[in-house]
Design a protein around this nucleic acid. Structure first.
Length: 256
DNA sequence: ATGCCGGGTCCTACCCGA
């Protein structure tokens, strides 16, 4: 079973990239972030032609998430439970398939709009922690994957790539990421590759890719029984070298 | 040293990302 996540930075700009990656890597499930289009504009037919069923949670201009799967699935939530009813940001999708709950997230960056923007990030993370705990208590196999916008440790960004007060590395962001881990979830990439750089993002600016000034901010977290089935997990760096790439690369995990 | 790139949209100067 292959489950992947990819922040594509506009699906309209990356429709063909995703199509080719599906054909090359053949994931069973792919979560997308930053589709940057309304739900009706998601190019579902392109991926249906490859045998995938899709569900998009879109929004004009910003954010937007989607999921593509080869097996039938049930949509459980199109927004993170616990957020205010009037929160219209498209950042969460939760499905059930093959006896598992799978969640795709685009977690707020937290660097915009000053402390108010950072507070929104933290409130969003608090809701995610509560949702994870509720699902873990039910003992259902669970995957939470996507763009977390958190570098969990200092091994997760190139020296000099971020300032110490960046929202991706601030204590409050990391404390909440650790809460997810302490609630019983396993960081899949670090389970397979405990040390060293496993970057998933390189800025378009200042030659960040050529200089390997990357960040590890796209993650997959697994409940205990799924962690026991984990045998591979890694970012796919090849995609960053393609023409007109996203600034993020796919991260894929494989379960026996 | 955040706005160097690259998306988006009120179509074009400005907002946003990490």
């Amino acid at each position: 079973m292959k489950i992947a996540t990819w922040n594509v930075n506009s699906i309209r700009q990356r429709e063909g990239h995703v199509q080719r990656w599906l054909q090359r890597c053949e994931p069973d499930v792919l979560f997308l972030q930053e589709i940057k289009c309304e739900t009706a504009a998601f190019p579902a037919k392109t991926y249906e032609a490859l045998g995938y069923t899709t569900e998009a949670v879109g929004q004009k201009s910003y954010n937007g998430v989607a999921v593509l799967t080869r097996q039938p699935f049930t949509v459980i939530h199109r927004a993170l439970p616990g957020l205010p009813e009037d929160d219209a940001q498209a950042r969460y999708i939760e499905i059930e398939t093959a006896g598992m709950t799978l969640i795709g997230i685009y977690l707020p960056n937290g660097n915009s709009r000053g402390e108010e923007g950072f507070a929104y990030k933290l409130a969003w993370m608090d809701c995610l922690i509560a949702r994870a705990k509720a699902l873990l208590e039910r003992d259902i196999p669970l995957v939470i994957t996507g763009d977390f916008n958190v570098c969990p440790t200092d091994d997760d960004f190139a020296p000099g790539a971020l300032s110490p007060d960046d929202a991706l590395v601030r204590l409050e962001s990391r404390q909440r990421f650790r809460s997810l881990i302490w609630s019983g979830l396993t960081d899949a990439v670090r389970a397979i590759h405990p040390h060293g750089a496993q970057y998933t993002f390189w800025d378009y600016q200042a030659g960040a890719w050529q200089r390997d000034l990357g960040l590890r901010i796209d993650h997959a977290l697994l409940s205990p029984t799924l962690a026991q089935r984990l045998f591979a997990a890694a970012p796919d760096r090849e995609e960053r070298a393609q023409a007109q790439p996203s600034d993020h690369v796919p991260v894929m995990i494989e379960l026996s």
